[in-house]
Amino acid sequence: MLDRIRDLQGSLSRFRQRQRASTTRDPQAKEVERRVADLRRELADLDAEKADLLRRRREIQRELGPSIGRKVMPLARVEKTNGTASFVAGVRMMQRIHRRAENPAHGFDGAGAVFADRGTTERFVLSHDVPLRTTPDEGPTDRTVVVHAFHGQVGLLEVAVGGAARHLDGDLADLGDVREAVPHDGDIPLPASLGEVAAWSARLSDHVSRPYVQVVWRQDGDHLALDRLDVDPDRLPVLTEEQDERLGHLFDTGHARMLKQPYLAGALENRVPGGVFDPNEPVDPADAP
């Protein structure tokens, strides 16, 4: 109804403009009236667009309102948030950053180079007292176990056989069908050594200078063998929103732990000309007690 009234008002206004333009004899005034008519048409279009935009704005504010326990999210409140932790957003951000390195696959810390080489990978793994293979653990020949680890914490394990997978959390509890891209099969038997594999993967990830790493194990004869550590995975599980946020919190912790290495080395200290800023120095030596 309102739209109809607005249309009628617009038509009336345009009619009046045309009338003015046609009745006046002053050619200059005629030109001005024509210009006025053009501008009024533009104004009417903008009015319509503004009404649509405000309607859409209100819709989204209503959609966001419940997240803060209100019917409508006030515009000024949108910025007052910590946001939501996210696995995909966090991991992809860190990948984009490391890919700015001279050798994008290696990253700034060289982790990609370490794990691109079988020999250096094995030396790293063994140096942390982690074996390269489990004790005998029979299973399908195409079985793989992917451990998604966040600097000492396991967030997700995927036991995959024949194109399907079973998803478990770090406590080996079944998560069900949480990854749209990989068919879920809750009947896939779990490797007997899964707990050990998870613990070893967590230990290794704790010594990798990234918030997140995939530790991949594959069936090799009658046991599981370490296949690779991947700090720059091409594929990243897109999980349900709930699981993405759960792993997002682990990413946040992994990110903090990544920074702990330079933090403990004093490399994050604030710099001033000639050295490191000492917060304990008196503010002004002249009036120090």
């Binding site: 950053i97 490391h98 390195a101 990253g107 700034f108 810390d109 060289g110 982790a111 370490v114 030396r123 790293f124 140096s127 942390h128 007292d129 010594h207 990798v208 200078s209 290495q261 330079p262 080395a265 490399a267």
Partner: peptide, 16 residues
């Protein structure tokens, strides 16, 4: 990260 790595403060940590 480049600065931290160049200073030896960010790297894969080998065990002992």
């Amino acid at each position: 990260l480049a600065d931290l790595a160049a200073e030896g403060a960010l790297h894969v940590d080998h065990g002992d």
